[in-house]
Every structure is written in C-alpha cells, then in structure tokens.
Simulated assay, not measured.
Amino acid sequence: MNRIAHIRTRLAAIAAALLITAGAAGSAAALGDRAPGTARGQREAAALTGTAKLYRPAGDDITFTFDAHLAAKDTMDPEQAYGTFRFRHVFPNGTSGWAEGSVDCLVTGGKVAVVTGVVTATDIGIKGKRVGMSVHDLGSHDRLGYSWLNQEAEDHLPPCMSSAPFEKVQAGTGDFTVLPWHPEYEQRS
C-alpha cells in the first residue's frame, strides 16, 4: 500500500471513530435527562450529579460524590428521590473517614441543590443516620455545604434539610451538575 492510500485509510478510520463517538454521545445526551419511570421526551424532575474535592489549605483531602435523581412522575414529592452519595475525608496525618448512603430527598432551585440521605456504610459511626448536603453549581467554582449530627446526638435531621453551601471546591474539581426542579402547582381560578 502506498503512502497516500495508507493516509486515506487512516483518515477514514478516524472519521468513522468520530462518527461513532458522536452518535454515542448524542444518544447519551438524548437519554441523559430521563430517569427510570420517565416518559420519552420528558426530563426528570430534578437531579444532582458529580464529584468534587473541597479546598483545604491544610492538606485535607475531602471528596463528595452525588448521583441523586427525582423522576418526573414524582415532581411534587421530593421525598421520592433516589440515588447515592459518598464522602471521604483524609486528614493530613493520614487518618481518614468515609460514608456512603441512599438518597431520600432532593430539592433543587436554579443551580442550588439540597439532598439528604441515610448512611448505609461508614467507618465513622454514623450508620443509619440521615445527613444533609447542599451544592451550588457554579461551573468550576462549585460550593458545598453539609449538616449531620454526631453519633451521640439524639435528634434527627429532617429530610431535605442542610446548611448553605459554605465550602469552596478545589480548583479544577468542581463538576457538580444541578438540574432545576419546577414544581407543578394547581392553578386557582
């Protein structure tokens, strides 16, 4: 095969790969706003997805990950939200703690989300406790907040409650995405 034929073959292969990738991305985007139980062409009611590390100048490594959703059919009941969350804190001295859990409520407004869930696995003694987290989706400058009670606390955090998103995320790690919730209220005559 001469050099020109070789170059044409490679260009054809690259073009085919790009078309396949574009098609897959288009299919994923078309399904991306749909949650289980959501009709074709109908977006889910709300969502919070992504991972980011908190900014801590002392060297702490703190990461939060969310995959929280509210199906369109549950628009007026944010306590039907589902999904998972995870957080991990590694201190500068090497000790660490982590927790993961199941989402039990999700409310979003504009680019702000509040999600709560019950811890299902952890090494910090809060298994079975509800925790609350908040995110402000600001592109690469996302912010995050959290509220939870220590293992000795007797009170319980209600669903969909958290603090304001007061923490900054580490530069370059903010990839949280908030899908705004649009409650559908009955029209009064």
Rank of each mutant, 00 (worst) to 15 (best):
G132W: 02
V131C: 01
F85T: 00
T116N: 11
G97E: 04
D137R: 07
A113S: 12
T120E: 05
M76F: 02
K129T: 10
D77S: 15
D123P: 10
V115W: 01
F87I: 00
S96L: 15
W98S: 14
G132Q: 06
G101A: 06
V103E: 03
G101C: 02
R130G: 07
W98A: 13
F91P: 04
T108P: 01
F87H: 14
L138Y: 11
G109K: 13
T75D: 09
K129G: 09
D77W: 06
G110Q: 04
T95I: 10
V119Q: 00
Y82S: 15
D123K: 09
G83C: 09
E79D: 04
Y82A: 07
V103T: 06
S102M: 06
R130N: 10
K111Q: 15
N93Y: 04
V131F: 02
W98I: 08
E100T: 13
H89I: 11
R88W: 07
G109F: 04
G132Y: 08
R130D: 07
S134Y: 00
G83A: 10
V107R: 12
R88D: 14
V90T: 12
F91M: 13
R86M: 08
F87T: 07
P78C: 15
R86F: 15
V114I: 15
E100P: 00
V112T: 15
M76V: 06
A113F: 09
G94T: 13
G101M: 00
T108H: 03
I124T: 12
A113M: 11
S140F: 12
H89G: 05
V103G: 03
